[in-house]
Design a protein around this nucleic acid. Structure first.
Lengths: 221, 221
DNA sequence: CGGGATCCGTTACGATACTG
DNA sequence: CAGTATCGTAACGGATCCCG
């Protein structure tokens, strides 16, 4: 496989970049933070990464002990983070906080799935102090289901259908990004860009509060 | 300058990587966290980055508002972080924490200066709870002077000669890395790999305590 | 000597096509 | 679904040259 480029420096930053600094690598890890994924899940989430590159990156990540291959249902292969891989959590969050300060390109290409959304929201949710909030919500973005939860002072987002949600909130990726960019207010978002189905009356207020807190995480960057 | 490669994704992580994800870019920022630097300071600290690449990276970082050019003494040009650039602090620290877990390559090339050391130590020092410690030390690594301070519960490292140090500690880059890798103990480090000159008796104990705390930051990764 | 610009061989990437 | 193979293009790396 020919040895890849390396900085060959003793510096821990350079050593880290030698493992995760290649193009696409951090985005692959980003998607895996949403949970185990198949080759094609990753390929779709990364919008057009060449198959050979994805193969190469995955092989190197496995070799470095950052991810591993496992067997999923129907004899499929799944990739998942190892303990070492999970330690990129904060790192990826910090990149997201930094990157959120820059405007997007003019010609955006849409991802084939929304693992990115679950991961970004999840990273922010983990920083939120959700004291006094209690809600289990199903967040459906462009048809993809995520679970948003708050309780015991902490909040989290998972990339999977919610079980017994108090509130079901449907929206679009575009609206969600417009909200987080500050292009639309929370009021406009709720009024014009959401379909909300309250299963347990009153809990929608906790959901809105949680949304505000998550947004605040990005603003404070 | 031909538009550079971009992920063209809306994801904040991808947007961040579009600015700082290119090869060398994060290492350039790393060195600038030690303070303003000239073109050649950076070139030396990065051990063999091609001049055209450094030029290109610096231009893009300036364009994105992450660094700026200023005038130094003798009509020299200096590069320094903007406010936006300073926000990469945590990001770089997280990479260092992650990277410290991997072994170095077999054939290491030595950097031309030790900005990397000041930045890495400084990032760790900032996380330390230095309650009860008070010391101002001159840390001289392979002849390069840094200032290590603790007081008011916080600690810091600066890439500049110390003014009125309580303790002067001379050591080598190799010994320092062996210590942080756990290859030698703190006792062996102090005994065999340091020359210590105590100006204010007793303060050397605070310095050793501070060293222990900084090392602990890396171990907990 | 500091701060680049230019040139050119090598390597990595990106797109498409193809296979078990 | 999960990759491999091929190939044109873009980026990198090293060296040389230029200018104040």
């Amino acid at each position: 496989m020919a040895k890849p480029r390396s900085y060959k420096l003793l510096c821990p930053i350079a050593r880290g970049l030698d493992r995760i600094g290649d193009r696409w690598t951090l985005l692959i890890l980003r998607d895996l933070h949403a949970g185990p994924a198949r080759f094609t899940d990753l390929q779709r989430g990364l919008t057009g990464i060449a198959a050979n590159l994805l193969t190469e990156r995955l092989a190197k990540l496995v070799e470095d002990g950052i991810i591993r291959k496992t067997s999923g249902p129907h004899a499929t292969t799944l990739y998942e983070l190892t303990d070492l891989g999970h330690k990129t959590q904060n790192l990826i969050f910090e990149i997201a906080m930094f990157g959120a300060q820059f405007p997007p390109e003019n010609d955006i290409v849409d991802p084939g799935n929304l693992r990115t959304v679950a991961v970004t929201l999840g990273a922010a949710a983990r920083r939120v102090s959700a004291e006094g909030l209690s809600v289990s919500a199903s967040l459906i973005v462009d048809g993809e289901e995520m679970e948003l939860m708050a309780g015991d002072g902490t909040a989290s987002v998972a990339y999977r259908p919610a079980s017994e949600p108090d509130v079901v909130l449907q929206t679009s990726y575009a609206a969600l990004m417009a909200l987080s960019e500050g292009e639309i207010s929370e009021e406009v978002f709720v009024q014009d860009h959401c379909r909300i189905d309250v299963k347990v009356p009153g809990r929608e207020r906790d959901l809105f509060s949680l949304f505000s807190l998550i947004l605040a995480v990005f603003r404070e960057s």
